[in-house]
């Protein structure tokens, strides 16, 4: 059996983030808390963010799910940490476009996230990859409102 297609999905960078997730855990005191589920499959993420002066000072996640959802959460926290909120939201938009197979801003340095591009070829798995990003967007918007 040939699994060439699978190699597009399960790139080694993704597996590395899955095995040794970055920013795993929760930020204590005064952080933004977001719980999000993927109701169709049971993936669950608990994201905590610390936003000060329009900058994402810290981001940590906890939860359970498949390799794609957990690797994507790890990469997301890595990408947004230290960024301005607008930059983080911009990255989220770029990521969403990439998942939907739309044209996206390739000038942006996506780092490890680029490895998730193959997910767009697996429609059933796109929601796994976007869960953490949706949680981040929700957290940032909720803080803006308050």
């Amino acid at each position: 059996m040939s699994f060439n297609n699978l190699d597009q999905l399960y790139r080694s960078v993704i597996m590395d983030h899955y095995k040794t997730p970055r920013n795993k855990g929760t930020i204590e005191n005064d952080s933004i808390n977001i719980e999000m589920n993927n109701p169709t499959c049971g993936d669950r993420i608990h994201l905590t963010l610390q936003v000060e002066d329009g900058i994402v000072k810290d981001a940590k996640f906890d939860g359970e799910g498949c390799s794609i959802s957990m690797a994507s959460a790890s990469m997301m926290t890595q990408a947004v940490k230290g960024q301005k909120v607008e930059t983080a939201l911009g990255l989220s938009k770029t990521f969403s476009d990439m998942m939907l197979g739309k044209e996206y801003d390739e000038s942006e340095d996506l780092g490890d996230i680029e490895a998730l591009q193959g997910v767009s070829q697996f429609p059933a798995r796109i929601k796994c990859a976007t869960l953490a990003w949706k949680a981040m967007e929700k957290g940032v918007h909720e803080q803006e409102k308050s």
Partner: peptide, 21 residues
């Protein structure tokens, strides 16, 4: 191996199973 990952690998072999809750 998470069940979603199992289901994706099986799908690549033409086998349809359910994964989730």
């Amino acid at each position: 191996v998470h069940p979603h990952d199992v289901a994706t690998v099986l799908d690549m072999s033409g086998i349809a199973v359910r994964a989730g809750h």
